[in-house]
Amino acid sequence: MSIRRRIAIVVSAFAAFAIAVMIWAPTVGTTSISLARAFDRSIPWHDNVDAQIFFVARLPRVLAGGLVGATLAAAGVVLQALLRNPLATPFTLGVSAGASLGAMLAVTMRLELSVLGITSIPLASFAGSLLATAIVYALASSQRRGLSTNVLLLAGVTLNAFFSALILFVQYLADFAEALRAIRWMMGGLDVASYFPIVAALPFIVISFAAFAMMTRTLNLLSVGAEAAASRGVEIVKAQRLAFVSASLATGAAVSLGGPIGFIGIIVPHLVRLMVGADHRIVLPASALFGAAFLVLCDLAARTLMSPLEIPVGVVTALIGGPFFLWLLVKRS
């Protein structure tokens, strides 16, 4: 079988699975609705509870889950190859800490601005993620020869710790209710009840995915080693910068949409590699598709398992991801 054919078949299979999940997910929930009624245009919108549950409560939620899951999984793949470390996550380099700090500040300063229907918390968290990305980038590229992945990793880990301290500090100064609200944001949530935030995050994610698509073979070479990649014709500095910036941008947009939902960026790429091998031309699109399906399913569990209560979706992914991560560590050592 030719390589092109293999890529096409495997990616199509993952796409079919993701599409099936995305179609099925909005039809289930804590309330039983009539799809016939939901799609009946003759019933006025204001009277059609089934349609509102489907189109306001569930569909945006499923779409947001799919987008966030795909983005975090794909960004995980890119950063793991860039850092040559299978245990890296989209949050390793400080993006989520920056986003959380932004959200925390928006909550405690009671920012209530909104731009094109996008409210203060997503705006501030996106700004925070850009700030974190800029700081890490500046630190890691201060050396003359492009990005040092070691410095990148160290800067990211340090920034994570520092921002976490700032978050705790702001939280300490905040009122009880505010602190609680910020903590809740950090557990992730996809009940967006609107298409605006999804549309707003989309351009950044689409641009990043275009960059991802161009670098799949380069990621293979990067994961063999920077020096080796350079000798095989990779413009290493450009490639590393593109990988870091696009993955960070995508992560920032995803986190501003759904909060810092953990473990997607590590579980999904690993499961996918176990299934299809290490070639990034398959791993990257397959992870994005599987990530979308995985997060939508986790969110389905989050909204139904303890009904009428909701489990924060970040808690669900962490409950699955924590043990998985440990198993991975044990297996590797």
Partner: peptide, 18 residues
């Protein structure tokens, strides 16, 4: 050569075609 992920021999050789 230290790989970050588990590639097959043929995949390594094909990377030479980059």
């Amino acid at each position: 050569t230290e790989l970050a992920f588990e590639y097959r021999a043929i995949e390594i050789v094909l990377m030479g075609r980059h």
